[in-house]
Amino acid sequence: MAEEGDLLVVLLDLALLSEEGVGAGGQAVAPADVLAQLLAFANAYTMLSSHNRLAVYAGSHDMCQLVHLGLGEGSSGSVFPAASLHAKLGELVRKAEGGHEPGANGTAPHPAGGGRVQPFALSGALSRALCLIHRLQQQAAARGRVRCCPRLLVLQGSRDGSAQYIPVMNSIFSAQRAQVVIDAVVLAPEDSSFLQQAANLTGGLYFRPPRGPGGLLGLLLAHFVTDTATRAQMDAEQSLGVDFRASCFCHKYVIETGFVCSVCLSIFCQPCRACTTCGTAFGAGGGPHRGGAGAAGHGAAHATEDGAG
């Protein structure tokens, strides 16, 4: 069977290219430098093999758009994706400026809440990327190609949005089921619990370089330019701790101890009379299952295994 190249889908948080997002890391790195490094990585990945396929989604707190899709050898277009990627990002900015006034659609164009960058719409980006991967895999199978091991690389510059807990976890479980590896490079001031769990569950790599995005390209070239099979033989350090804390389903708070529905495993931060997810009525004695310390965390871990199965 013919060889099918590696497939990499990059989810780019546009906060990385904003003054607030880059500055949040405590490093004085211009957004243009970060963009140049990302374009250089895109070129390098495509140049590594003519079969390599690269897709890039760019998104922010309220949108996610496919800005590049290169299908490797045989497809039209330039060998180097940087020009196309740059042009599409420019088009995205022009559309945003021309079609929507700042603040339109009820969205806040600027960081709200004490200068903090709005969280990246990770759940939507993951869903779209998984759909794209599924489609490309189906097409490759129809052409009789060997199935490759697709990857998702999330470049995130903002914090997690706890409100997205359920869809993000569902997307992660879907990726795990579809054998899609999720890698993450987080350039925000704090670790991303979502992406730590995503990398942990799907066998991906998670990095949060303490020096910020200054040497981003070095990191990308060292660990993310090769396919997963090659990467398994390489030397990469992964931090041992993964933040498995869950968000409650009722208020989206990140909690360490909570109450778990014994029927659907929904997590709540306080006792309630009935599960808001499955409608199970609990007894008068309190919650359906009074968890001890770390109960919610364990609940999330169990849910992970269930999703894998």
């Binding site: 243009a32 949108m63 020009a83 995205l92 900015v93 969205t107």
Partner: peptide, 21 residues
């Protein structure tokens, strides 16, 4: 989709500074 490019204020500047070629 609402294209409120919230944090994209610096994006246009970054794009103009970088020549992909």
């Amino acid at each position: 989709m609402g294209l409120g490019l919230g944090p994209g204020g610096g994006l246009a500047g970054a794009l103009s500074c970088v020549d992909p070629g």
